[in-house]
Nucleic acid binder design. Structure first.
Lengths: 195, 195
DNA sequence: GGCGTAGCGGTACATCTGTACCGTTTTCGG
DNA sequence: CCGAAAACGGTACAGATGTACCGCTACGCC
């Protein structure tokens, strides 16, 4: 229909970052090149080099965006379900959402995590990501009557990370909820108890 | 001293794979190139292309090696500590070992994990890795008197993965044992109980 | 002891990459 | 409405990369 008035200015920057996340999630951070990102965004090569002075800056900005999105998602989710009694079920839904709509940001976040191993500049992003997750989960735990929400949140987030990574790696083979629910149920039972 | 008789034959293949793991752990899978690996192994470029018909084959073989090493490490560790009563302490030592001597194989394993997201050929390696970890941990849990070792092992390995990844990302900043022990203690307490 | 083959090392080359450059178009404050 | 500054698009180029190729060497088997 519309001959599509081309996106200009700062909006382009956002477009490029989105395309970068797609590339990272779809082909891995190693495949992130100016040309590929530009192509994914439907823009000429010079667009990426104009808005990001180096490939590294582009990659870092993309990681930051992925982390922020994921933090926002989990925070909103936790707020919406604060004070729940069926914590395991709520967490199952959270993980399903992360692996569903949140998949792109999630993969990028894990890639960033791994790269932070050798690139200290990424540590601050990693720190915010961890902290965001931790406080969101701690909030849920408080509502569910955990005796030590902060410690329990550390346990829970570690397990969540492991579960997410595992199910990403295994692909969409088995139904997420069916596979994850019993594990989370067992964990929550252990932490919150049934008292 | 010795002019070092050059390594020849199959031994070279092993040398190259070790060098490849070093590169993956040190500079990331994206930095794995024939030239870099050859340089790290102290061999000419043609050595890597002779023993591995493509870069992909080299990368996959390196991942396989990393997984096998890690599986062996965790299995031996579990065997050595079977029937322990202080499960949390034993697990803390396991994780410290993974992050210490096992660091290279561990990083490579996680990188493989993430890449399995988009490369189904890696799934079988991922499967063996998961299975090896799961049965090793289940063995420990049985000894510690868990009511449902298999399910609890799923919980535990997920948490272990998350903890390992987190501490890799944060670098060697804080003492591993100090940071990890309370989390594992809380988790084990929840699973095995004190009954 | 000779010889076929596996192992080896050097080089070549087409392709892709990051980035710099430069002339043109659009935007917007005055 | 005008002019400077921002945004844009195309192109150029040096360097790195995967891989093929070719002639040489060492080793094991007859």
């Amino acid at each position: 229909m519309s001959p599509e008035r081309p996106v200009r200015g700062e909006a382009r920057r956002a477009l490029i970052l989105d395309a970068a996340l797609e590339v990272i999630a779809g082909e891995g951070p190693g495949a992130l090149t100016h040309r590929r990102v530009a192509a994914a965004a439907g823009l000429p090569l010079a667009a990426t080099t104009y808005w990001f002075s180096s490939k590294d800056e582009l990659l870092t900005a993309a990681y930051r965006l992925a982390a922020d999105r994921d933090i926002r998602r989990v925070t909103e989710f936790a707020d919406r379900h604060a004070g729940t009694s069926d914590l395991a079920e709520v967490l199952t839904e959270l993980l399903a959402a992360e692996l569903g709509e949140g998949r792109t940001a999630l993969i990028a976040s894990f890639a960033m995590w791994l790269e932070a191993t050798r690139r200290p500049e990424l540590r601050s992003i990693e720190h915010d990501w961890t902290e965001g997750y931790l406080s969101a989960v701690a909030g849920l735990l408080e509502g569910a009557g955990s005796p030590s929400p902060r410690l329990d949140a550390q346990v829970l987030t570690a397990a969540i990370d492991g579960l997410l990574l595992g199910h990403l790696a295994r692909g969409a083979q088995d139904d997420v909820r069916t596979a994850i629910r019993p594990v989370l149920a067992r964990l929550v039972e252990g932490l919150v108890g049934d008292a």
